[in-house]
Computed example of a mutant assay.
Amino acid sequence: MSFPITRHRRLRGSAGIRGMVRETVLNVLDFIQPIFVTYGTGVKNEISSMPGVYHFSLDTLKAEVDEIASLGIPAVLLFGIPETKDAVGSSGFAEDGIVQEATRLIKKWYPDLLVVADTCLCEFTDHGHCGMVHTHTLDGVVHGDVINDASLELLTRTAVSQARAGADIIAPSNMMDGFVQAIRAGLDANGFEQVPIMSYSVKYASAFYGPFREAADSAPQFGNRKTYQMDPANLREAIREADSDVLEGADMLMVKPALAYLDVIRTIRDQFDLPLVAYNVSGEYSMVKAAAQQGWIDEQAVVLEMLTGMKRAGADVIITYFAKDAAGWLRG
């Protein structure tokens, strides 16, 4: 049937009707709030390119976690900025590393709040890459290659130390070939068979990461990450990456970034039945914040529309720096 028998506006005529037939609904349980922890005392420093996001030292961390828990957000994602860095990122797998210490504190304060540990080396290496590198200098310019297989041992040590500290979920973000298999084997061998892996399965070499690299002090000191992170032009490759992680034992898959990759989220959702995570990354956050500060957009309306779009595309979980704001808006 067609007009005038069919009138689509009948189901849009009031807030009650629109709510009744709404197909996609955001919930606070969808969100994971990232946190940046650092060394020192009395530190709560706003990240200049990410308004409203801070570096916290361990002694200032509790107030932030209190707020997150009070809003009903079920999980946090921890990133650490260490006091010292070296070529192999040893601070990342130290038993007294900043992420490990923060994990212990959060699990002491809120045993039911899920701690997701980002498992990578870029914040902890002096070269800023996600694994071990072999470097050489040519005409005064440093060049380097990221060594895949040797990096897996260090990443596995990092994951095991994070699980030992109490992390509920290990989230490896390094994009080395075979990283899920290596970490799964390492966790199982150390008695952490029940700790799930949230794999950064489809992580693009994106221009949207700029503010994060300030926040995590993780910019590469030479070259870039295009030899291990994915080409933004590729979709079929994303299926191959996700398929490998499923076969290697991933419990959850992720697409990162989210906003410019909604087609990828939908494709991975349609191809695989594991829970799917979308990472609403720093550049996406900062663009909205900057426009809102200029008065050009309605921040609340834009953020909730954006997050709804990610969920509508197929995401079950959304990592977002807007988690606290969104939780408050949804509650209100």
Rank of each mutant, 00 (worst) to 15 (best):
V202I: 07
T24G: 00
S57M: 09
F272S: 07
L58K: 13
D126I: 03
S2F: 10
Q229M: 07
L154W: 07
G314Q: 10
M132R: 11
A260Y: 10
N280H: 15
T24P: 02
Y110K: 10
F93Y: 14
K226A: 09
Y39K: 01
Y54M: 09
V246A: 00
T125I: 05
A87T: 10
S173F: 05
D145G: 00
P34G: 08
P82K: 08
M50S: 01
Y279R: 06
D217M: 13
V288M: 12
V142T: 15
P257W: 04
L78N: 12
G314Y: 07
G16Q: 11
A189K: 12
A216W: 08
V160N: 05
S2M: 09
G80A: 11
M1H: 14
D251T: 06
Q162A: 14
R240T: 14
Q194C: 00
L114P: 01
L152Q: 07
E241D: 12
A185V: 11
Q33H: 08
V202S: 07
S161R: 14
E46M: 08
T137N: 09
N234C: 13
V277I: 14
A219C: 01
Q162H: 15
E237K: 12
L114W: 01
L187F: 02
V288D: 00
V28Q: 08
A250D: 11
I170C: 08
Q300N: 04
V115Q: 06
D245K: 04
H143I: 08
S286R: 06
V28S: 06
V28C: 07
Y110T: 03
Y261F: 15
D139F: 11
Q181A: 15
Y321C: 07
I197Q: 06
K85P: 13
V160L: 10
N148T: 09
P196Y: 02
I68C: 10
A258S: 14
E64H: 11
W109Y: 05
L304M: 12
G16M: 12
V277P: 00
Q271D: 03
V264K: 08
V88R: 11
L113G: 07
V141N: 02
L187Y: 03
T125C: 04
H143W: 14
V99I: 14
P34R: 08
L138H: 05
S199R: 01
Y110W: 07
S199F: 01
T24I: 12
H8T: 13
G210A: 14
F272H: 02
G295C: 01
K324H: 00
G166P: 08
D217I: 13
M50N: 05
V133G: 04
T227S: 15
I319T: 09
W296A: 14
M1T: 10
V160G: 05
V99A: 03
I297T: 12
I68Y: 09
E67M: 04
L11G: 01
S173Y: 05
V160K: 04
M310T: 08
V303R: 02
C120R: 03
A102V: 09
T267D: 06
L259W: 10
G186M: 11
V28M: 09
L253T: 07
L259K: 06
A233Q: 10
S201T: 02
Y261G: 00
R266M: 05
A167P: 01
L29W: 03
